[in-house]
């Protein structure tokens, strides 16, 4: 850390972190466990598809997404019922087919749909927001090998901002895990 000099973080040329490539799923899982156990916090794995067991290997905490979605769904239900009650029974009541102004059976379909709509919109938007997306530029995109992270290769990256990051120690750890040379990622 101490040897880090200008440019400051985020500036062009500043060190973002290290990236190392794996060929196989099980190598990645072993690597991920090792990095986790070494105590790193600001690091990530990059895989072209969801890998079962990687969350545990990385120690990823469970997301709060379900609670947000549940809250949004509940808002949708209450909002949907309230909308129908307010509009048809309170604000402008009118007599239709001798039916009551407000009765739940007739209001279930719309309330159901608003529930799903609110919850589904929240699921996508909150997922993106929690992931910090959209983020079109990222230092990792400057690396040519990294392009295969969406194809058939597996990567682990450790950020220089991690408190445990050490230029040589971290490099050694990653190289020992993958058997490949570590790629140095710098800000563009």
């Amino acid at each position: 850390m101490s040897e880090r000099t200008a440019p400051a973080a985020g500036e062009p040329g500043a060190l973002y972190g290290y990236l190392v490539e794996f060929d196989k799923v099980d190598e990645l899982l072993v690597g991920a466990r090792a990095v986790r156990d070494a105590g790193y916090t600001r690091w990530d794995a990059h895989t072209p598809f969801v890998i079962h067991g990687l969350d545990a290997a990385m120690g990823v905490k469970k997301t709060v997404l379900p609670y947000l979605v549940f809250g949004a769904g509940l808002t949708g239900t209450v909002g949907g019922i309230a909308l129908q009650w307010w509009t048809n029974a309170v604000d402008y009541p009118y007599l239709i087919s001798g039916k009551p102004l407000f009765s739940l059976p007739a209001n279930i379909p719309v309330a159901f749909e608003t529930t799903i709509l609110f919850a589904a919109l929240t699921a996508l938007v909150a997922m993106l927001a929690l992931n910090g997306l959209p983020r079109l530029y990222h230092p990792l995109f400057t690396n040519r090998a990294f392009k295969r992270a969406t194809d058939d290769r597996f990567f682990i990256s450790i950020e220089a901002a991690d408190p445990l990051f050490d230029r040589s120690a971290t490099r050694e750890l990653l190289e020992s895990l993958s058997g490949r040379t570590v790629e140095v990622i710098e800000e563009a």
């Binding site: 009118y94 007599l95 239709i96 087919s97 001798g98 039916k99």
Partner: peptide, 19 residues
């Protein structure tokens, strides 16, 4: 009709019962 089948199906309440 007092229980007019036409009224309940109108989405914009263009046909309703008067008092």
């Amino acid at each position: 009709c007092e229980n007019a089948p036409c009224e309940q199906v109108c989405p914009v309440a263009a046909t309703q019962h008067t008092r």
